[in-house]
Design a protein around this nucleic acid. Structure first.
Length: 466
RNA sequence: GGAGCUAUCGCCAAGCGGUAAGGCCGCAGCCUGCAAAGCUGCUAUCCCCGGUUCAAAUCCGGGUAGCUCCUCCA
């Protein structure tokens, strides 16, 4: 397996800390709002990474955190009158449910900040004791970036004069402009305060990830985990700060490899909280099938920016349709073993830094070849079994193609409509038998107007939702 | 003001120094009562200008254009 390391900025052969095992920590959501397409893409990218590694024979342990202490959550609570707990549990459930609709598997470990306070306090105390952190008069604790000679290694930002150019106001008692809060003391009437030796307050944004990793993973003298992932925007300052904390607190590096996924844009425009043009996953799922969304969001390499638009999504759906039409041709058949050459080619593509585009083209070629074989030999039972197994393999590796084909093509069609379609098809078949093509074509037009496309096959007429 | 990324067929998108994958769209054909589906065939020299090399879309330098990070963000 080769992966692109965003710190070294090059592809590297994955050599895990422990042979045969890969530990992954991905930055999860702050649960104060609905998940958007960007969250989906990140979750999908690392879901596919985990699946690929498992297929390559690694024992994978993946952690994804839920940030459930945060200023934004507090604000939301104040604005809505709901409790912090209500908000965080609601959005956590929603997140898991929506990602589930996209076929994203659950992480092995799903730590929450509120459940990691001991580890957080311990790490901050260690940093204070070792002289890497300092407490200011109001009770805040800051990390002293000047004490870490490797600060900047992750994001390659070395400019000390940034304080003059930076848009961040420099108003507190920080020693250096880049110092960041490990702990924020309670001020006034804020209602989440946790008691610690340094002050009553709450953790800063970055510390939870470092603390959770120390708590849940047991690395070596060199590294805590193999792969740390997240969105490209987290590279700085979030991951730089995480790395610094961990390095200084534990004496070894946080992660051996760093992976970052690119952004999602909507019709060419950046999607962001501040621009207010977030495309929520819940809205997308109302219009598009989760499996189609999964296929589409995965069709562009995870490191590139992804420009979401309906036209491309439709093209992606058509591609997935083709796979399901092949599956329809071999249903029902039992499964044997997938085509070896295909399996190898698919894994090879995925082993190259998750080259999903290549994998999809391998699948398209497989579909075409098997359609041709079936055209020539419609009753080849062994071939059909192999195709069933091949599609099962695709589903386990990439997470699509697992539905029953008839179910797939009839998503959104209720029983009443289904019956009407079937009735019309019976009428049409009779008309065809009687060579009444004017009537049969009229029925087809009626179905087309209903958004139903039909196809005559040797086994009878089948229909699909267009 | 600093740091970085990208630029490949009408559209989406691989390519990672060895002579341009795949999909959508389009055209022609086979099949079909006609269609649809499926199959076959056809469709690009890689933003511009230099350079390195036997060989460059791929490396280097300079342009141009777009995007991102430095502020909550995946």
């Amino acid at each position: 397996m080769v992966i692109y390391d965003s710190v070294q900025k090059t592809k590297l052969q994955l050599v895990p800390i422990k042979t045969g095992e890969v530990s992954i920590y991905v930055c999860g959501p702050t649960v104060y709002d609905d998940a958007h397409l960007g969250h989906a893409r990140s979750a999908l990218a690392f879901d596919v990474l985990a699946r690929t590694l498992k297929h390559l024979g690694y024992k994978v342990t993946m952690a994804k955190n839920f940030t459930d202490i945060d200023d934004k959550i507090i604000k939301k609570a104040e604005a809505t009158g709901k409790s912090i707990q209500e908000i965080t549990s609601f959005y956590t459930d929603r997140y898991l449910q929506e990602m589930g609709a996209l076929g994203v598997g659950r992480a092995d470990i799903e730590p929450k900040a509120t459940q990691s306070l001991e580890a957080i306090e311990t790490m901050i105390q260690t940093l204070i004791d070792k002289g890497f952190a300092y407490r200011v008069s109001n009770g805040d604790v800051y990390f002293d970036t000047s004490k870490d000679s490797h600060y900047g290694d992750i994001s390659h930002r070395v400019n000390e004069n940034e304080e003059n150019q930076s848009r961040i106001a420099h108003t507190d008692e920080k020693k250096n402009p880049k110092d960041f809060a490990l702990w924020k003391a309670c001020k006034g009437d804020e209602n989440i305060c946790f008691e610690t030796a340094f002050s009553s307050g709450r953790p800063g944004w970055h510390i939870e990830c470092s603390a959770m990793i120390e708590k849940h993973f047991h690395g070596t003298n060199e590294y805590s985990i193999d792969i740390h992932g997240g969105g490209a925007d987290l590279l700085f300052p979030h991951h730089e700060n995480e790395a610094a904390q961990s390095r200084c607190a534990t004496g070894h590096e946080l992660a051996k490899y760093w992976m970052h996924n690119g952004f999602v844009q909507i019709d060419g425009e950046k999607m962001s909280k501040s621009l207010g043009n977030s495309f929520f996953l819940k809205d997308a799922l109302q219009v598009y099938d989760g499996e189609v969304l999964r296929y589409y969001l995965n069709s562009v390499h995870y490191r590139n920016d992804f420009n979401f638009n309906e036209e491309d999504l439709l093209a992606a759906k058509k591609r997935l349709d083709k796979l399901y039409r092949l599956k329809k041709r071999v249903t029902p058949s039992h499964s044997s073993a997938p085509d070896t050459a295909f399996k190898t080619a698919l894994l090879e593509a995925m082993s190259d830094d998750l080259n999903v585009s290549m994998a999809l083209s391998v699948i398209d070629e497989m579909v075409t070849q098997n359609n041709e074989k079936l055209d020539l030999n419609p009753k080849d039972k062994e071939l059909k079994k192999e195709i069933v197994a091949t599609i099962e393999f695709i589903n386990s590796l990439l997470g699509f193609g697992g539905k029953e084909p008839f179910e797939y093509f009839q998503i959104g069609i209720d029983e009443a409509l289904k019956n009407k379609i079937e009735t019309l098809l019976v009428e049409r078949t009779e008309a065809k038998k009687a060579k009444n093509f004017i009537l049969s074509d009229a029925i087809r037009d009626e179905l087309t107007a209903m958004g139903i496309s039909i196809m005559d096959t040797p086994g009878g007429t089948v229909w699909e939702k267009a």
